[in-house]
Design a protein around this nucleic acid. Sequence first.
DNA 1: GTCCGCATGTAAAACGTTACATGATTCG
DNA 2: CGAATCATGTAACGTTTTACATGCGGAC
Lengths: 176, 176
Amino acid sequence: MSLRYALLGLLMDKDATGYELMNEFREKIIYFWKAHHTQIYRELGKMEDAGLVVSHVVHQTDYPDKKVYHIQESGRKALMEWLSDYHVDPPSLKDSQLLKVAMFQFIDPAEAIAFLEQSKGHHEIILKNMKLWQEKNIPDKKGKIGEYLTSEYGIRSMQNWLDWCDWAIAFLREQK
Amino acid sequence: MSLRYALLGLLMDKDATGYELMNEFREKIIYFWKAHHTQIYRELGKMEDAGLVVSHVVHQTDYPDKKVYHIQESGRKALMEWLSDYHVDPPSLKDSQLLKVAMFQFIDPAEAIAFLEQSKGHHEIILKNMKLWQEKNIPDKKGKIGEYLTSEYGIRSMQNWLDWCDWAIAFLREQK
DNA sequence: GTCCGCATGTAAAACGTTACATGATTCG
DNA sequence: CGAATCATGTAACGTTTTACATGCGGAC
């Protein structure tokens, strides 16, 4: 149900097509929410049925026609009500990497260390990209407070993973 | 599909009923994987169909009868294969709290600060309980390496959230 | 000439949540 | 006297993922 509010939030800034919303999702919200294009198209359809948004088709010659969505007053109201509610669903995390770590007693310590080192390398690249994205997209911190705060959280979480990797690798080396 | 391996991992240590596995899930795996009892019972049934585990019913007089699951050689093999595969699915996080933070530009800064302070209080309690759990359940770090490493990660993540909250609150106060 | 981006969607399968159903015992 | 624990599951519903489907234009 939160997907709906994520989409309404994006439509507050400007009208958009399902395709554009999908891309914005990929860029901005990726740290803490993901959605496939199929899901976005379906949810937009339901939102239009509920009168929260309206769409109109824009004809294009070189590209396929597109359907632009525009938020309605009832959509704005629904978003604001959701925002003012302090109750949140507990976050749901599914991390198969941590699941494997939880079973490190079943594998060779050298294997475990190799696993973590590979993960570290991978996440270092992600962290670099996150920092670049923040610099590029949020030079003005005041205008996009929400995105600035969440992107900072994303960066800190990634740094936390890297620090934990170092700690875990050191611990495993000691155990050998 | 990872639920299957989580259950196999738990069954490596000792035989268990669906009910016991559900409780172990709640305790140990809660930071990075959750499952309802209905899901666990369904998956165990499928795993038995696939020959990864076998069950036998234990008759009880005072309590309802119970069905104890025991891992098979093919189950152990499947788990080890999964473990030795370095490929992991990207973690999936759905955090409606961060989604609300992402929309802080639409609400009053004082409201935003109140929201974060409430969240901070809530997570401080969780952190305390996580630390207690770690002390109680993993006094011997060598025996349960996997659990020790993941519980440490859980604690660090929680601390990271609290630190970020402090930073975000300070930032919002400056902006006022 | 193959892949990427543009742009939309349907259908089915898999996974996750909530409600319903039972019924004894134990603790406050 | 009510709530929690023990113990299992089905059914219905909702959400998420994957596969299928189309088709043009531009870059390498």
